[in-house]
Simulated scan of single mutants.
Amino acid sequence: MTTMYAALLRGVNVGGARKLPMAELRALLADLGHDRVSTHLQSGQAVFASGGGDEESLAAQLSSAIEKRFGFTVDVLVRDHAYLKGIADACPFPAADLEAKQLHVTYFSAPVDEERFAAIDRAGFLPEEFRLTDRALYLYAPDGLGRSRLAEALARPRVTKGLTATTRNWNTVVKLVELTSA
């Protein structure tokens, strides 16, 4: 059975570092045997169909292939359509009433629990808020991610230690659901 996946690459094509042209990423995924390959934006999202493997093995395969071909390491998360749709459908914030720059999802490589975030004084960051699921965090940042003090606190090493984490704005979250539904 073929499943549609999204690959989320962390930290490519940002600030001139770790250049990874999307056309070359599409070619690489096709060379790995995946079908219906496409990319979204220049910031490291690819969609593909695969008949074999699981999210972790597909992510490891792509990360290894990128390092081999381009000479640098990239953390990769792979999520299937059902997971991505579940994240979009379960949003605890009124997504339809917010601008995309105000709502973000951080995807984690492994399950996270509230204890990891216990040292963050949530009231001290209001009106910014976050909510957790098993492998994702929803962030409401009314002034956008670039001005978010809470986003800075959430990205500190003591919070993210041992995890790969990558954040996408709400437009990208919704677009990935759409692209993987085909």
Rank of each mutant, 00 (worst) to 15 (best):
M1E: 11
T3M: 08
T3S: 07
M4Y: 12
Y5G: 03
Y5W: 13
A7K: 02
L8G: 09
L9M: 04
L9R: 02
R10L: 05
G11S: 13
V14W: 00
G15S: 08
G16C: 05
G16H: 04
A17P: 00
K19T: 07
A23L: 12
L25T: 04
R26Y: 06
A27P: 01
L29F: 10
D31N: 13
D35V: 11
R36I: 00
S38W: 03
S38R: 14
S38V: 08
T39I: 05
T39W: 02
Q42I: 07
A46V: 05
F48C: 14
F48Y: 15
A49C: 03
S50K: 07
G51K: 09
G52N: 15
G53L: 11
D54L: 07
E55Y: 03
L58Y: 01
L58A: 02
S63W: 05
S63K: 10
A65H: 07
A65T: 06
A65F: 06
I66K: 09
R69Y: 08
F70I: 04
G71S: 03
F72L: 07
T73K: 13
D75V: 00
D75F: 01
L77Y: 02
D80C: 10
L84V: 04
G86E: 06
G86Y: 03
D89M: 10
D89G: 07
F93E: 12
A96C: 01
A96G: 14
D97P: 00
L98V: 10
A100R: 13
Q102E: 15
Q102Y: 08
Q102W: 11
Y107D: 02
F108L: 05
F108H: 00
P111E: 08
V112E: 00
A119E: 11
I120F: 06
R122W: 14
A123T: 07
F125I: 11
L126V: 12
P127D: 08
E128G: 14
E129W: 09
R131L: 02
L132I: 06
D134H: 08
D134K: 12
A136K: 01
L137A: 11
L137K: 12
L139N: 06
D143H: 15
G144E: 12
L145T: 00
L145S: 08
S148D: 11
S148H: 13
S148E: 10
R149M: 13
R149L: 15
L150C: 05
R156C: 06
P157H: 09
P157G: 15
R158L: 09
T160P: 02
K161A: 15
K161N: 12
K161Y: 01
G162Y: 00
T164Y: 02
T164D: 03
A165T: 05
A165P: 00
T167L: 07
R168D: 06
N169I: 12
V173H: 00
V173D: 01
K175C: 07
L176R: 02
E178G: 08
L179D: 05
A182T: 15
